[in-house]
Structures are given as C-alpha cells and as structure tokens.
Design a protein around this nucleic acid. Structure first.
Lengths: 349, 349
DNA sequence: ATGAAAGCGCTAACAC
DNA sequence: GTGTTAGCGCTTTCAT
C-alpha cells in the first residue's frame, strides 16, 4: 500500500487512547444510549485529542450509502443550468450531502459516460436532464433518479421536476396579444427535442382557440445558442417583410442572438422587431433593449429536484411530478401596438 | 444491514462463475501479467455476463484514493466561476475523475464547512478560491490543494493558478490611454480583498510612472455585484461633474451595474461616461452598449488548476505558480477621445 | 499460474 | 455496559 494518504487517526486510535474497545468507541461516537456517560465522555475527549474524523469511505462501504449525489446537466457554464445547479447544490449542502456535477453538452455519449461515472462513484441518487435518445439508460440506473427538464415526459414513471412550459408559453402569448402582437413568429427549439413539440403544440392550440389559422405561423429552427438564434433571425428577416415583426424565441440565448441580427440588419428593436425570450437568464437585463422574457424558476427547480431525491433516498413517499410555474418578466424588447389600451384581450379572443 | 442498496454483482460472483478464486479474478480484471490467457478470458467473460462493475468504494478504502476532487468557488451561478468550473470539470472528466463543486458565497464559514465536507468525502485533492481570512485552514487540508484567484498570493507555498491581474490592469489602462482617457475613475473591489490592493497598486504605479499624481484618483468601493456597481456609480456621479467621465470597474458585473446607473441618470454611455470592465463574462456582449473589458482566461484557469492538481496527486513535480495572461476585449462602451490618432501613447508617458 | 488469507475502517450482531 | 467477532468488496502479500 505504497500510495496511501498520510494516515489519519482511526477509531482504533481513539479506542486505544480512551482505553476501551473499538466498538465501545464506535458506540460513543455514534451517540448510542447504552453506554456509561463517563465512558462516552472519555471517548469523545480522546477523539478530539487525536483529531479523529470518521472515514466516510469505510462507513459507505458498510452502509452502501455515500451521501453523494449526481447532477447531469447540459452545460454548467450556461447561466440557466448554473442556476439549477446552484439550487440543487444548496439543498444538498443543507442536508450534509455533496453533489457531483457533470456537463453533457446535449451529447448522449457524454451523458452515458457521466452516468457510468456516477454509478461507479456509488452516488445515492442522481438528478438528470436527459438527452432524448439515451433516456432509457436511466431506468436501469439502480439508484433513485429525478428528471429535470422537458424530456421528463418520456419517462412518466420516473419522478420529475420541471417548469410549466405550457403555462409559460401561454403567459407569453397572452402578453404579446395584450400588446397587440397577434402573429408572433417562432424561433423554435431544435427539431427532435420534446420541448419543441410541446412549445409548438401550445402555440398551435392558442391560435386555434382564437379562430386563427396556425398554418400562417412563421417558424425558424435553432439550437439554443446565440449564434443559431442570430442565424435563425437572419433567415426570418429574409423570409418576411412584415414590420413591425414580433418574435417569440424558445430560449433567451436565441432571443439575444436574434436581437443581434436585428441590429445587424439595420432594424430597431422593439420598434421594427419585438422579441420575447424564454428562460429568464441574467444577461437579459443588460441587453439593448433589455429582454422581455418568460422566466423559468431555475434555482427552484434544482432545489426541489434535490429535495425530491433526498426524500426518495430516505424512503419517504413523495409526489412523482412537480411542475413549477413560469413568470412573465416584462422589460423593453416588446413594443406596445395596442395604443395604450392594454388589458385582457384574451377574453375577447 | 437493512438499508443497503440492491446488491450488485461482486468480484466473488465473477470468480464463482469463472471457477477461479477471488484473487485470480481480481488479477484478471486488473490486467496483471502473471495469469494464463485462457483464465483471464474466462474471467473477463464471466464479468461481462454477470454485469460486473467494480465497487469504487471498496477500491478507495484499500487504496486511499477516491478519484474525486473538490472545487470550492464563490458562486457557481456567477458566470465567471461557472466557466472556471466547466474548465476544471472537463479536465477532470478527461482523467476519469469527478468533481464535487461547492459555492462559498465569499463566506468564510461556508468555505470551512465545504472544506470539511471535502475532507470527509476523502477527495484526492481540491481547487479552492479561498476567502481571505480562512486561508490558513488550507495548509492543514491534508491532501493537495491548488489555489485559484488572487488570494493565492497569501500562500506562496501552495501551488496556484491565476490570471495576471497586473498585466490585465495595465492592458486596460494602456487601452484607455490610447483612447485619450487619462484619468479613469475606479470602481474598486471590496475593501480588504487582496485583489483590491493589487488592482490599486498597479493603477497607482501606472500613474506615477507617467508623472501623474495618484492622489487625484476617483475611487468608489463595491462588492462585485451589479447592485453595488450601480450604487457605486451613483455615488461617483454625485461626486464629480467631470464629463466625459471614464470608469474602470473591478469586474464586469459592477461595470454592467454602472452602465445601468449611467442610463438612469439620463447620461449616455460611452458619450458621457466610458466604462471598462474586468472579467469577460458573456453578458457583456449583450449590454447596451456592449461592454469593453479585460477578459480573464476563466475556463483555462479551471483547466490548468485541475491539471496541476492531477500532477500533484500523481506525485509528479509541477510548476508551483501559473499565471495566465488576460486579454483586451474592445467593444462599444469606450469612447474615443483621441481624435482618431490612436496609438502607443504609452511610450510618450 | 493460482489459492488462501490478511486487512483497509467501520458497524452491528452476538456474547458476557 | 462493554468486548469479541464477522463482514462490507477489494487488492496484495504469501504460500504452493
């Protein structure tokens, strides 16, 4: 065992100093009741004097529980996911648990590799935003898993925490309507992503409910990134001469990219093009103009997912699916076409 | 052992299936040479057939190494630190290591608590951006520690990775000078932080070198946050009527806050007030105007710190201190007062 | 080339 | 109330 760490004191050292057996020391340390108070005091004193810290590895090997959890998200450097991570991490820390964080970059291969690492590390459970095609690997994960994000729907039997996309989209659409924007173009999520289908379905329904033809919808596809939002906006601008134009983007990064494209085209936001985002990332405050958006409760999602996971691990029953509401954050990227008579246009259809 | 996980196959199962002893199975699995090829094949086949995965906990208990590392940063939701985390995380993943990430919120108590958690988890090493007053706790951490950020200087004996603040500040000051801004006001880091002292010392020296009196420097204190940057800018605006004004902020968040305050005061950036940031966070691209800034190599810092840590753990010698250069990112928040004759004013003083 | 056995540090039966 | 013992799953002598 040449590679070992400098030896830290074990329970055996403590026992020796306290003149008791290993197990008595263990009992004292674990707070068992069947022990003479003075013995316990002696052990505790001994432990303190040698600077004893229990070896979590040994405890884990015996108990099968590590007190560690995994978090697999697309990208920790993405502000939305960083917020989620922060929420999960804080909740974990409150419960003396630690969090292993991995970024999958939306790649199934990386996700699978991270999931393997988590299994290897013997985490007590994991929170995962699954890449679509690898989702079934989660069923065999072995330890409790809580899903976050829109792909959760594919695995109804697994617990999940997410934001209420449908409610959020409706919130945005209603807001747009109240400002007089009746025909928003859509900068959509990547084709194939479940979130896209859900988003579009709500938009579709919304149109139909109001007796409008969804076929007239302008849709451009993107990739959840600034660059792709910019490119999508360029294509959109080339496709339609409608001004003022209104655009509803699938996420804030795309919306911000779109804003760049608008400026690049010599147009003004919101005068020529109104832009509504989705996510609520901090950068939206600083854009020019500041970005109106539907804010997902990112930190809360992480917090609740961790909470659910902890309950699962502890064997408590818990709700299987949690859906947290989105909020409208009205800033400056939307023009008001309603002539000031803003209000509940929803009732009139 | 009532709380145990559903039993996964152990090396004993494998040995049994392969009709060999535990130790032979171990040898085959570990790739030892002193084993008959056909025996090894049999073991490997058995392992695959039962779906064997080595228990990392048991390995760790024996070897004393967990393959896990800790990262303690102020706030994972802060874009700069998220980048650092991403860099460290990627490098860790490349080396089959995992990363436990903690946010200290610049609080010594939280940092200490996280450090304790890391010790408990028996990480092989840690990367820490230390809160000033708790820094000595790191000396007794027991496992290799790599420091990141400016507080590293306080612990010259510990290896560290950081950005070259002095070079970065000079880069900014020179850039400002080349644009004709000879008297930048400073939105400084929190009092007491080492980074503040270093920043100010460079500014001071820069002034002196050019025969100017540093006493004339306008300085406002902040807290590294948008709100405090905004407040500091308000105070600055109330304090001086100099226009055009030029402000050099200790970080981008403060710079962005300052920009908000400028707009709020009915002034124009960069016409009335030029603003230079420090960090290079993504949000600077979207601000109005886009933020000129000194970019720290955030991701690289995380990457190199993890690299250094891995070398240390493996017993390799490695450089003790790494200083990565900053880059000037010229965007739109600085006005050009030089009348177009931009150039090396530095030579003329 | 293979097996037996010890031991990493801990907890929990089981004795007394 | 306390000591003895076994065993979590693995690696690594030490024999053979």
């Amino acid at each position: 065992l040449q590679n070992r760490k400098p030896d830290r004191p074990t329970i055996l050292h403590v026992a020796h100093v306290a003149h008791v057996s290993k197990s008595t020391a263990a009992r004292a340390l674990s707070g068992a009741t069947n022990i003479r108070p003075e013995t316990r005091a002696r052990v505790l004193a001994a432990a303190k004097s040698v600077g004893y810290e229990a070896n979590q590895l040994a405890k884990s090997l015996r108990s099968g529980r590590t007190g560690m959890f995994g978090l697999v998200i697309p990208d920790i450097a993405n502000p939305f996911w960083a917020e989620v991570a922060r929420g999960a991490q804080d909740r974990a820390a409150q419960n003396d648990a630690s969090l292993l964080i991995f970024s999958s970059d939306w790649k199934a291969a990386r996700e699978a590799s991270h999931l393997r690492a988590l299994r290897k590390a013997r985490v007590d459970g994991a929170i995962v935003n699954p890449v679509e095609d690898s989702i079934d690997a989660l069923g065999r994960f072995g330890t409790p898993v809580v899903l976050i994000g829109s792909s959760a729907e594919r695995f109804p039997e697994l617990p999940s925490v997410g934001s209420d996309i449908a409610q959020g989209v409706r919130l945005g659409l209603n807001h747009l309507l109240s400002l007089g924007h009746t025909d928003p173009a859509i900068l959509a999520a990547p084709i194939g992503r479940l979130a896209r289908a859900r988003f579009m379905r709500v938009v579709h329904d919304f149109f139909v409910e109001r007796g409008r033809d969804p076929a007239g919808l302008l849709v451009e596809d993107g990739e959840y990134t600034v660059d792709s939002g910019k490119a999508a906006m360029r294509r959109l601008l080339a496709r339609t001469t409608r001004r003022p134009l209104c655009v509803f983007a699938a996420n804030d990064l795309m919306a911000l990219g779109a804003m760049l494209a608008v400026r690049e085209a010599g147009l003004l936001c919101p005068q020529d093009v109104s832009i509504l985002g989705f996510d609520g990332i901090p950068a939206g405050v600083f854009s020019h103009p500041s970005l109106s958006t539907i804010a997902k409760p990112a930190r809360q999602i992480g917090d609740r997912a961790m909470g659910l996971l902890l309950e699962r691990v502890r064997g408590h029953a818990s709700p299987n699916h949690m859906v947290l509401p989105c909020e409208m954050v009205a800033r400056a990227s939307l023009s008001d076409l309603s002539g000031g008579r803003r209000g509940q246009l929803t009732a009139t259809g």
